[in-house]
Design a protein around this nucleic acid. Structure first.
Lengths: 335, 335
DNA sequence: CTGTTAGCGCATTCAG
DNA sequence: CTGAATGCGCTAACAG
């Protein structure tokens, strides 16, 4: 078996030029005569030459790779987010290396270690709860990082995300304006996500004015939504609306309700969180908060690349979301 | 600003040892005295030393990185698959770099180029339709690659996946055994996926024996399922079962049917493909094909790493799937 | 058990 | 516009 791939030196001897010139051509430097450039390009083609990534990275101290550590990829909202990051990065010549922490701070730290050791130039994290060593590590090494999916003005590290507290509060307000005063709030495991905790707090903050909130924790999937709504029905038949902190939960509620012979919004109103791609297609269409997951991904990716390339400081960014009104919430008493 | 990170040489001078010894310690070589090892480790800690990934990669010609190019990440089935790959690779000290091709062969080729230039040591592709240059490129460079999500015994490249043709055929057979002879088949865009084409062919192959199949192409999402079932109802009121080549489509069918006042499986039986995590939670539970997405991810990742580390040849692997029977398919005339 | 010596493949001065 | 020389940080023989 002959040598796997050509090296810059092969191209140099082949063309009778120096490696410096080849390098110039490969990197699109201006100061190369068109003739030479053409000759080099032709030889590269012929020898199937491809600059060695490791050598290049070593020489330039740039791997063109950005790491993202996410709690899980199996919730569509994260899939959308990752897709946006990848597309944005790709457009700028960067790649994304992925790690999944399973919402565990320890795994997150380990993953960060590993990805640093893989040459990631910057990090995209999720949420606000992390091991303190995490930031320390990035700061010591001068590796830029940003937290997403949350918004925290006073955070020491830049944050690009949205205010979960506010969104939840807004959702409750919306529901109360529709005349609902007995509201069940369905949410995922509090222990796993600071975003969930923030949403619960936000809901509570809006709920104090004469409307009664009941919280139900469950697993963050359709099955969880179903079992939670069953608990709701058992405990509180006076509930008129259920706010789900994920559309996935809402879907479970739809089915749980229908299997009890109850209809949405006739018997109970349902509101979601996320605005997943199917939220418009269910019957009735799900009224939900349109989380800017895609937009967030684009923002983080774009800003991180800009920072890496030109030193532009990373701007803490607070993304907004609106409530998309569809058919799942009924007005109980007008005005 | 002082130097970002310590280098091996710093640790060497700090401890009064040679870089070779430091390197030995960092790589867990046996032939280092415990005392020396401890001293080195301590110094690494203190100097916050971390081997430079690029230098290491250059020296060893190993980046410990594997690339996956997928058509889309927004279908849960792929998310599950990616998660499995990531977890398996992580356990073995490898990372996954991701690219999304949007089911476009041209983008796929570009992405492969880019990821090669990032130092990926192996490639995980999806489907069987690719630009011929793709394989050429990998072969020339001696970069291992495998195709997934499909099964093709005669493929030149190793394949780890399942037989879409067979699964679809099996699904139709299942339905016909339940007494259904007028079946609508809902599928995504034929032009975008060879797996979809294989499934259609498979269904057709099983359909020849006195049962009538009608194919409906639509977009591969819940909305697509809804609109397709409407077309079905308009064109063929004699249909008793609909086979969806994705659970996502089936969900749309559920809602489309219910909004027409039809019930599953009372009026129409529905069968899916994928067995997504919510398929058991919908009402009625969705009878579907349990695609081994997670298993497939583990297999590919494990085999690729084994091949990279020990040269174990990659075994073409055909994964099986079973039909999980839940409540969405009714028996029309008993056995 | 530890040190010395070469590269790995490329980018980048500095000359010319 | 092009070439020669040097170094990026680490691993891997080869000595001792």
């Amino acid at each position: 078996m002959t040598r796997k791939v050509g090296r810059i030196r092969d191209v140099a001897t082949e063309t009778g030029l120096s490696t410096a010139t080849i390098s110039r051509v490969m990197n699109g430097a201006e100061n190369v005569s068109p003739k030479t450039r053409a000759r080099v390009l032709e030889a590269c083609q012929r020898l199937d030459y491809f600059p060695n990534p490791a050598a290049k990275a070593l020489s330039t101290a740039k791997s063109k790779t950005i790491a993202a550590i996410i709690p899980t990829i199996e919730h569509s909202i994260y899939a959308k987010y990752i897709a946006a990051i990848e597309q944005t990065l790709a457009k700028r010549g960067y790649s994304i290396v992925l790690a999944i922490s399973n919402a565990d701070e320890e795994s997150e730290l380990e993953a960060a270690h590993k990805l640093l050791g893989m040459g990631a130039q910057a990090f995209i994290l999720s949420g606000a709860a992390h091991r303190p060593e995490l930031s320390d590590m990035f700061i010591r090494r001068g590796v830029p990082f940003v937290f997403t999916s949350v918004w925290n003005a006073v955070n020491s590290a830049p944050t690009i995300g949205y205010d979960n507290f506010e969104f939840a509060s807004r959702a409750v307000t919306y529901l109360s304006e529709k005349g609902h005063s007995q509201i069940a709030v369905l949410h995922g495991p509090l222990s796993e996500s600071d975003r969930t905790r923030a949403r619960c707090d936000g809901a509570r903050s809006a709920g104090s004015e004469g409307i009664c909130l009941r919280f139900f924790e469950t697993t963050l999937d359709v099955t969880g939504g179903r079992s939670a709504i069953n608990r709701v029905l058992q405990e509180r038949r006076d509930i008129t609306a259920v706010l789900c902190f994920s559309d996935v939960l809402a879907l479970g509620v739809y089915f749980g309700l229908s299997s009890e012979g109850l209809t949405v919004p006739g018997d109970i109103s349902v509101m979601g969180f996320d605005n997943l791609d199917w939220s418009a297609a269910v019957v009735p269409g799900l009224t939900t908060i349109d989380l800017p997951a895609g937009q967030m991904g684009e923002h983080v990716a774009a800003q991180l690349v800009a920072h890496l390339e030109t030193g532009t400081p990373i701007m803490p960014t607070k993304l907004d979301a609106s409530i998309v009104e569809r058919g799942s919430v009924k007005t109980i008493r007008p005005g």
